[in-house]
Each structure stands twice: as C-alpha cells, then as structure tokens.
Write a protein that binds this DNA or RNA. Sequence first.
DNA 1: TTATTAGTTCGTATATAACAGAACTAACAG
DNA 2: CTGTTAGTTCTGTTATATACGAACTAATAA
Lengths: 156, 156
Amino acid sequence: MTKVILTKKQKELIEHVGIFFEHQGFPPAVARIFGLLLVSDKLELSFEEIYSSLNISKSAASNAINLLLNTNKIEYITKPGDRKRYFKVRIDQWEKMIKERFQGFSSYISLIQEIHDQRTKNTKAFNSSLKDLIGFLTFMSTEFPMLYEKWRKSKK
Amino acid sequence: MTKVILTKKQKELIEHVGIFFEHQGFPPAVARIFGLLLVSDKLELSFEEIYSSLNISKSAASNAINLLLNTNKIEYITKPGDRKRYFKVRIDQWEKMIKERFQGFSSYISLIQEIHDQRTKNTKAFNSSLKDLIGFLTFMSTEFPMLYEKWRKSKK
DNA sequence: TTATTAGTTCGTATATAACAGAACTAACAG
DNA sequence: CTGTTAGTTCTGTTATATACGAACTAATAA
C-alpha cells in the first residue's frame, strides 16, 4: 500500500480533472490517473503508487496506463537497479495535442467539401453557405501555423 | 413509406458523415439524420421521410430529432394547412459551432491554471511548462476573434 | 530452487447507451 | 363521434464499456 500522500484539495482536483478528461472521451480510470499525475507533488509515480492512491484495481490501472502510453499522454522512466517503471505526464507533448485539435479542421474541411461536391445545384443558398464554411475553415487552418509562430517569437 | 430517393453515392456519404459525427460524440441515429439532412437534394424533410429513409424506428427518430433541435443543429418549418413539421439543418449556426470549439479552450485554460496554482513549487520545470501552455492557450483565445474579423473582412 | 515483485491477461459482473416496437396522445378531418 | 395523422412516451432487449479479482508470467532476489 505505497500510497501517495494527497491533501483533500488535491483529491478534489483530481476528480475535477478526471471529469474534464471524461468529457474529452477518456474512461474514468484513465482520466483519474492522468489527473493524479498532473496534481501530485511527486511527478514520477510507480504502478503501485498509482493504483493504490486511486483505489482502483491493478488490471484497471494496467489497461489505463497502457492507453495513456499508447496515446503519448504519459511516458515512463526507470532507475538503475530498480525493476519498477515510474510514470509521468508527457508535458512536452502538449503542443502536439493542441495541433491535433486543429488538425481536426482539415478532416472537417474535406468532409464538407465532399458533401458540397455531390449536392444538387438547385439549392444555391445552402451550397453557398457550405462554401463559406469551407472557406473559413481553410483560412483558419492556414492562419493557425502563422499564429503559432507569432506566439513562439513573442515568448523569447 | 414516403422515402426520400437517394443515390448509392448519397447513401454512402450519409454513412460517412454519420461516422464523422459519431466521433464528435453523437449517437449513431442522430449522426445519420444530420447526414441525411446535409446530403439530401431536398433540404426540408418530414418526420416520416426521415425515419423511413434511414430505416430507423419512429421512437429513435423522435428522440434524435429532439436532440438535434435542442442543440440547435436543426430547426423546422411548417406549411399552411399542413400539420407536419419539416426539418432542416441550421447551416446559419456553423459560426457558433466553430466558436464553441474554441470556447473549449477557456475551460481548458482555467483547469490548467487551477492545477498550476495548487502545485508544489519544487517542480520548477514542470510548472513552467504548465505556465507556457496557459500562455499559449490564452494567446490563441485572444487572437481567434481577431482572426475571425480578418476573415470576415477579406470575404467582402 | 523458492519466493517475491511488477505487471498482464482472462473471465466475469454491472451499468448504461441505443434502439425497436407497441401503446399512447393531441389535433384535425370527415 | 370516428378515424387518421404526426409525433411522443414507455417498456424491454441487446450491445458495449468499464472495471474487479484471480490466475498467470517473466524477471530478479535470496
């Protein structure tokens, strides 16, 4: 029972983060583990610390951790002469996550384009709204990388 | 059985659109109905046309349509001396949908802020990455409205 | 060689989402 | 009044997601 010590506030925040990530489509246990790793004072937690701190089963923890590893949300480190793995948030990957959110646009664009292309020509106003939408999303997806550069420079 | 006539290509596209909206979190039947209304030559479809064209039950259609109405994805019109309602996509609402996508950022920001504020001060690098992330998202959420204006002007 | 540790895998229970079908309701039509 | 239409609500079924717990495995330790 190598639990991580957590204040009441931290426990509440883990639930809060958990619910947030559930809304993003993660299963409850996955979302809690991610929350724990974000909130805990200790950044690198062992398998046992994770499942015992959250009162979830080993199997649930195993599956959840593997999901988080596979989607690059977390990674693990090892220590010489220690068989355990220590899991931590891949905070370095946040840029990628944000970009993925924008990437969503491009599949949105091609879907709407596909709809537009097969539509009857008789519904002019509707088709032109679709065109508008495509135009806007295309504009956004070209502007976004520039905006990103702008921010990167302003940071220095 | 007042089915809408659909080409094979249109039927396929409805499924394609359906799967896309399933990924966005809509139930299958809801996603199909939305797909049908986007793809069909006829823009305004009656209750019966919808459920019979998609081979879904009346109850499924009723619930799905109400969900789409409640979330402003569709609306309906009526015709004098005709008790039916004719449902159509609220294409005018697409701007709002995009904005909602960005609105998501602000709740993301406040969550990360909350995590950052309660963290131990001992994990400097990690905390500073969180700060970076907050800075970037804040930057994006202020720049977005400007970008939107830029597009609107360029359109005219 | 035996025990322990660090996880994984498998079978099972539980909850819930999604839909079908039938019964129902409200409005209007004849 | 009686029937019909347009849609809703209720009940039951099925499929799937999630997690538990126990058995298992592979590596190290003693």
